[in-house]
């Protein structure tokens, strides 16, 4: 177990492993998204209240889920990096931020476009769900800004890991915001007592999209970790050998 763990944490080993894994995550991921999107748009029946406008859920929920998932990965990887001084963990944390930020933006934008016809507003200042999700976008942006502001990579790793851990408090707040405070936003549909409150014909495309988005996120993350590892290890021998003897590199 520990041998495997240490091997995984070795940059050249991880670099090769990531190269192999990326297509195995990306292609099934995009295939699931293609199925989920098609079935969500054309096969699932319209909702009894929202009619066809509810179909925005097929991208809104996966995006919102990933925005939180990416943040947790970023915070946990940052914590592991702080405790075990593992450089690879910091590389993972740094790589999760831009992808997480893009999905947070998508969750906010799709929610806004959904809210206009259904709630009657693009955006409501003061709504706890909307506010906490917006705060997360700012946390991502702050994290990336902090990283780019510190030239020394080791210092940037530490400072940004602390910021990520502090901001992690916001993740459960987002999830429970609709229960703790009154909100315009609906309650949880999928993760709730008594199981998902959704017809099966509507549910399966949604689950396919959530899984598909997660796999694609995994592929994107590994792709970025590869760049990050290469950048950090630029002066090591294995990178030199890799560059001088190309072939299986890119």
């Amino acid at each position: 177990m520990w041998k495997w763990f240490h091997q995984l944490a070795s940059p050249p080993h991880f670099f090769r492993l990531a190269s192999v894994l990326i297509p195995w995550l990306a292609w099934p991921g995009y295939a699931l998204i293609a199925y989920g999107t098609f079935a969500g748009l054309f096969v699932a029946p319209p909702d009894y209240q929202q009619s066809d406008a509810f179909r925005i859920i097929y991208v809104h929920v996966p995006a919102a889920y990933l925005s939180m998932m990416a943040y947790m990965i970023m915070a946990i990887a940052g914590g592991i990096g702080l405790i075990w001084r593992m450089k690879l963990a910091h590389a993972v944390a740094a790589s999760a931020a831009p992808i997480g930020a893009s999905f947070t933006f998508l969750a906010l934008a799709s929610g806004s476009v959904w809210g206009r016809p259904m709630w009657g507003t693009w955006w409501e200042w003061g709504d706890p769900r909307l506010m906490s999700e917006l705060l997360m976008l700012f946390l991502y942006i702050g994290y990336m800004a902090l990283r780019s502001a510190i030239d020394d990579t080791t210092k940037a790793d530490k400072a940004s890991a602390v910021l990520a851990l502090v901001g992690a408090v916001n993740v459960p707040v987002i999830h429970y915001s609709v229960e703790w405070w009154s909100s315009l936003h609906q309650g949880a549909t999928l993760i709730r007592e008594g199981g998902p409150a959704m017809d099966a014909a509507m549910l399966y495309p949604l689950l396919a999209n959530i899984l598909g988005f997660s796999l694609v996120f995994g592929a994107l993350l590994l792709r970025r970790v590869r760049s990050e590892v290469l950048r950090r290890e630029g002066r090591t021998r294995w990178v030199r050998e890799l560059v001088l003897a190309p072939g299986d590199s890119a």
């Binding site: 999107t37 748009l41 319209p46 009619s51 066809d52 406008a53 179909r55 925005i56 991208v59 809104h60 995006a63 998508l106 934008a109 799709s110 476009v113 959904w114 206009r116 016809p117």
Partner: peptide, 15 residues
């Protein structure tokens, strides 16, 4: 999309 086409399609295009 029963009148919601602009909202639904713009969201999927953005995605």
């Amino acid at each position: 999309m029963s009148g919601y086409g602009i909202y639904v399609w713009s969201t999927f295009a953005l995605t």
